[in-house]
Design a protein around this nucleic acid. Sequence first.
RNA 1: GUCCCCGUCGUCUAGCCAGGUCCAGGACACCGGCCUUUCACGCCGGCAGCACGGGUUCGAAUCCCGUCGGGGACGCCA
Length: 506
Amino acid sequence: MRQRPPTQHLKEQTMSEVRLRFPPSPTGYLHIGGARTAIYNWLFAKKHNGKLVLRIEDTDAERSTQESIDGIIDGLTWLGITWDEGPYFQTEFAADHAAAAQKMLDSGDAYKCFCTVEELEAKREAAQAAKLDFKYDKTCRNLSAAEVAAKEAAGIPYVIRFKVPEQEGAVVFEDAVYGRIERKYRDIEDFVIVRSNGKPLYLLCNVVDDIRDRISHIVRGQDGLANTPRQILIYQALGAKLPIFAHMPLTLDLQKRKISKRSHGEIVAVQYYREIGFLPWGLINFLVLLGWSSGDDREFFSEAELLEAFSLDGISRSNSIFNYKKDDPKFITDPKALSINGHYLQTIAIEELAGLVKPFLQKAQIWDDAYEAGRRDWFLQTLGLIRERYYTLVDFTTLGRAYFADDFEVEERAIEKNITKNPQLVEWLPLLADRFAALADYNKETVEQAARALAEELGIKPGILINGARTVTTGCLAGPGMFEVLETLGKERVTSRLRNVAKLFA
RNA sequence: GUCCCCGUCGUCUAGCCAGGUCCAGGACACCGGCCUUUCACGCCGGCAGCACGGGUUCGAAUCCCGUCGGGGACGCCA
């Protein structure tokens, strides 16, 4: 990335009303790219005491679904991204779009084009064959009023095209991220704004809606950058004030392809992160860092800190890569995302964590209502103990299953390393169980004493007993301090699991 | 093909506009050590990058030109 663009225009703009929008098209679930766009818009609006408008761009009737609309709203809600107006639906403003097209027709900024799709196709192919760039050849641009009337009378269908100025010069604008962008008039073709069936195109609808919604800042993906000059032409033809444009870099996969629901599936769906046990803020914190930096080395932000630090100037110009490997089970998603989520999982208030873990335990059918009643203290303490190495809420039901149920799996590697290597554990562990059973007061101190004493009697390293016990009582190779674990698990579970060690030799 | 944008460790990035304090800093991942007569956590350390080539300059990651690489846009999709 090169130098930061000038930011003076932003300062001027903040004096008037700040209004942002997030305009998803409901053709699939909310994916992380869309979520990131929403987050940036939300942050900017909030930071500047502005408003965020949610606008569903549902003009593509074939691909838009109610399910998708619900999914998007659901995803935003889960993330905690709030909007101040809407959802508006683009289809409800068809009259505005039509009126805008008519206005441009009247003012001479647009014209009716009677060329058929077939004719255009043929010309496009011819151009391609000759290795030439194809732009609409303006056949209908200079039709006389009489000619137009005749064609219309004959019932020939037409599209409406924008009349791009035939002059030297260019559309110039200052992008808040990419700096000065220029597009020469002669490089812009007379683009279609209304289809032959009377339906206006996205390019038009989008601008008309943004004008009506008084959007002051458009923060969107870099794929919109090339559309911007054409949209600016429409703003000008409609006599509207231009918003500030800020284009953000795209998120690519490891093969540098644009991430999409179609080619990447659930791993890019916001919904997926909820299911695998992300905290909403963990995902937001990860996503916001994908293409933006506060300028210092901070990586974790509270909402207040993020609002304080966020600025369009910190948005990078180069695309970033969402780092995950499809066939590696260790990469259920980008490791950095996991690490950030783990940070929050390990540091939020334990009571809050309890509420987040509950649905996961319920889903795994290892929830007990006593965790909110008589066993609440035990529950909170246990969560606090085991969360140290967990990255997602699901970990509590998998890695942590042994704390809540007896039907847990034992890791193969743990068996190899801590059990079968010492065959005598078949006798030693039940012996240890006897010692624990005999304890009048069963707690981490007495348990430790008993274990160390037994190890000494047997003439073995305490570690052998400790790691063996870890494996049979928790099923895991690693975890918190063993004596605390034994205490939290309780005498009953511990002794019975220790006595059951023989089954691991089967 | 045409137009536009981008290029610092494997990944996210700081540094670039206002050249020297950068034989390039942080984080994740990975590796090693310490701690633990228990794995881990934690702590400490390591690996690894300015795409390439010219130019300007006493001095370039930073400025200029070119090359290469990557991405985006070029629809009666949104």
